[in-house]
């Protein structure tokens, strides 16, 4: 994924689309837009940095999982198996991007009718209704790059909804893809590159 920060207006619609698509409970948002103010008045500017999961090639969260519940899948995404995760939250401490969340079992059912009746088929697994102590409750959750949408040939919800077309989704392994060309741009950088996590999300500054 490539995100062009010059085109991002900070409208947070990616966050909204993500919540709607993945039906994440209160307190969990797979995507957030970080707002960073740079400089001192009057020479200030604000940079909006949308932050999905970086789907790192060297994911520190995966390295620390004691039971292999989270792993790097063949398609390049970092997956969590909600049927194996023990909820120790070690991976949350290890993620340098704050991209992981713990499902405390909270629900919107008080303010949103039928919220518990259906869950998003994350990682392609249909889990039916949301229960009070039924996985993924009590486990760690994260951005999946909407793999259930990718399976239908659709883009992740955040990319599809972006009003400024700031997000590009594609195959970085294909040298002719649009994302590969964008990544070759001198504007391209990655978050906390110095940690050696090799994120798969690039930004154009």
């Amino acid at each position: 994924m490539v995100i062009d920060l010059q085109k991002c207006v900070g409208c947070d619609s990616c966050t909204v689309a993500c919540k709607a698509e993945n039906r994440t409970p209160p307190g969990i948002s797979y995507n957030v837009v970080l707002e960073d103010e740079q400089g001192t008045f009057p020479n200030v500017r604000r940079v909006n940095v949308p932050r999905p999961c970086m789907q790192c090639d060297e994911p520190p969260c995966v390295a620390v999982c004691p039971v292999n519940a989270t792993y790097k899948a063949d398609d390049g995404t970092v997956v969590i198996d909600a049927d194996r995760c023990i909820g120790c939250r070690y991976c949350i401490t290890a993620c340098p991007y704050g991209a992981r969340s713990f499902d405390f079992g909270e629900t919107y059912s008080d303010e949103m009718q039928g919220y518990d009746d259906v869950q998003s088929p994350e990682w392609g697994v249909d889990r039916g209704a949301r229960g009070s102590y039924k996985p993924p409750v009590g486990t760690v959750r994260k951005c999946t790059f909407c793999v259930h949408r990718l399976a239908h040939g659709e883009e992740p919800a955040c990319c599809e909804t972006c009003i400024g077309d700031a997000r590009y989704f594609g195959d970085l392994n294909d040298p002719n893809s649009k994302v590969s060309k964008l990544v070759a741009d001198p504007r391209a950088y990655r978050l906390k590159e110095e940690l050696g996590t090799k994120p798969r999300v690039y930004y154009l500054r």
């Binding site: 390295a63 620390v64 999982c65 004691p66 039971v67 292999n68 519940a69 194996r84 995760c85 023990i86 909820g87 120790c88 939250r89 070690y90 713990f102 499902d103 996985p135 009590g138 486990t139 760690v140």
Partner: peptide, 23 residues
């Protein structure tokens, strides 16, 4: 007690991940 799913605690003995100090 701190585990999100404490009933899965014992599976830490079944599944081993050598890069995880916790394992």
């Amino acid at each position: 007690f701190d585990l999100g799913r404490f009933e899965r605690g014992p599976i830490t003995l079944i599944f081993f991940h050598w890069t995880s100090p916790l394992s």
